[in-house]
Design a binder for these strands. Structure first.
Length: 469
RNA sequence: CGAGAAGUAGCACAAUUUGGUAGUGCACUACAUUUGGGAUGUAGGGGUUGCAGGUUCAAGUCCUGUCUUCUCGACCA
């Protein structure tokens, strides 16, 4: 018996990635380009993500709703910048059965206009604010290049849409959710993300400000792993959403939206995975422990049952009659954080073997201490995975003091390059056209300390550039 | 969307050059024996050769279109 062979990560990263997706049974291709089948192993990870994030959203007062799948063309057209940004990548429904529709319907590429169309009916007074809604749903964007999890046409995601009485409150919400994403990705997904502000050129169509979560993959390429937008009130104005404030004056509310997708699963794979397959951070691993009996005599089975009784975390027992080596490999491909090998040899000393998925280190532990040891190592693995990813990312962060240096790094070293930037789009575009690197994000906690490396005018921001998926 | 490559069972491939009964390994099913790093034996099941046309007595093989996947580029909040 053999599992699907995985291409070496350093030999061909792109192939390695698809091999891991397939070998771990996370996804399957469908007949439609860019629409992937998320298999049980993949969906279980999404459910873990969903469970944690959804609870966090609710703790902060958000409620889940479900908006329509379709947007009438006239509704999409209400906000000009927004429609210009999305028109090139929307899918249209033109027929119902055999009959041509009076008005085309677009399959939502995002739901700002749907929420606005609804909010205009339900927001009348300051007492109706804030509106803090979220929905878990799929959207469609007709991407030209597609890859499992990283870029698909049908996207499974979560989108929050909120309306607020004041500008400050809306800005706070935008930042609050940005940090919810940041904390979640750091603490649960073990991703050392960089948060920042998108440039005017890269911001969301229709937003005033777009904040972003930028993760760096093993190969130094960026993955935008979540965004949080502040809209001001121009959508609200375009949609005639207004309310009477505390002084009985008519006001326009302020809006935010924020979203994360199953792309986060792609980030987990590309950050933590290795040549043996997936490596899941313990906190979001659907199965945290797999128990593998070696042989099936009575004493072994008895010990397995004892351990199962002890454990307080989700686990599986592999009682199949496949060879131990096969079971080991399979548990590694699937990325299960801890493997417990129960066999005759160790049992003579009242021990079993604990194997860490992240390091593949084998550790002997006493049978009656399994519970504590497992819990201890789940924590250690979670922490070590983050630190390992952090060290690798830091090793691929560069600073360029002039454009020559920038070009040199861009050509020879994968990763992000930090520069001083004047804030003008021409300089940003020049870099993109000449090096292929796009701006990732303006740093929030670091000021410019020199001149723009392109035009040499006074720097306005510190900003990262990098290649992206 | 442009250039290139590829599609034969779940996976990897053979048969295509020279048109003539679609085959092998792994995976799958049953039973037995095995079990400390990808087990062994025996017996089975699975294919309108991506799809649609065309040429031909005959197409996996030749021709046209189309879809999907991969690589590079363009696009991408």
């Amino acid at each position: 018996m053999k599992l699907t062979k995985i291409t070496s990560r350093d030999e061909d990263f792109a192939k390695w990635y698809t091999d891991v997706c397939m070998a771990a049974n996370l996804v399957s291709y469908s007949n439609i380009k860019g629409s992937m089948i998320i298999c049980p192993n993949g969906y279980a990870i999404w459910e873990e993500i969903q469970k944690i994030m959804d609870a966090e959203f609710k703790k902060l007062g958000h409620q889940n709703v479900q908006m329509p799948l379709f947007i009438p063309e006239s509704l999409l057209n209400v906000e000009k910048e927004h429609v210009e940004g999305f028109a090139p990548e929307v899918a249209w429904v033109t027929h119902g059965g055999d009959e041509k529709l009076e008005e085309r319907l677009c399959v939502r590429p995002t739901s700002e206009v749907l929420f606005c169309d609804y909010y205009k009916n339900v927001i009348k007074s300051y007492r109706d604010l804030p509106k803090l809604y979220n929905q878990w749903c799929t959207i469609v964007r007709w991407e030209k290049t597609t890859r499992p999890f990283l870029r698909s046409r049908e996207i499974l995601w979560q989108e929050g849409h909120t309306m607020h009485e004041t500008e400050d409150e809306a800005i706070n919400e935008t930042l609050q959710m940005l940090h919810v994403y940041e904390d979640f990705q750091r603490n649960y997904l073990a991703l050392p993300v960089i948060v920042g502000l998108k440039t005017e050129k890269e911001k969301f169509a229709g937003a005033i400000k777009t904040y972003t979560i930028e993760a760096m993959m093993y190969d130094g390429v960026a993955l935008q792993n979540g965004t949080s937008h502040y809209f001001g009130n121009h959508f609200a104005k375009a949609f005639n959403i207004s309310f009477l404030d505390r002084d009985n004056k008519l006001q326009t509310p302020y809006q935010t939206s924020w979203g994360t997708t199953t792309r986060m699963i792609g980030a987990i794979i590309m950050t933590h995975g290795d040549d043996h397959g997936l490596v899941l951070p313990p906190k979001i691993a659907p199965t945290k422990v797999i128990i593998i009996p070696i042989g099936n005599d009575e004493k072994i089975q008895k010990t397995v049952n004892e351990i199962a009784k002890q454990l307080d975390v989700s686990f599986e027992i592999d009682n199949s009659n496949k060879s131990p080596g096969f079971k080991f490999s399979e548990s590694e491909v699937k990325g299960i954080p801890i493997r417990l090998e129960v066999g005759q040899r160790d049992l003579e000393n009242n021990e079993i073997t604990l194997v860490r998925r992240d390091t593949l280190e084998k550790i002997k532990i006493k049978v009656n201490e399994v519970k504590n040891e497992v819990e201890k190592y789940l924590e250690i693995i979670q922490k070590d995975m983050y630190n390992k990813a952090l060290a690798r990312r830091n090793s691929m962060l560069y600073t360029a003091n002039d454009y020559e240096e920038f070009k040199n790094i861009a050509q020879n070293k994968p990763g992000f390059i930090k520069i001083n930037w004047c804030g003008n789009e021409e300089c940003e575009t020049k870099i993109k056209d000449e090096t292929g690197l796009k701006s990732r994000c303006i740093l929030l906690d670091e000021e410019s300390d020199g001149n723009c490396i392109i035009c040499h005018k006074k720097g306005l921001h510190k900003i990262y550039f990098g290649k992206q998926y």
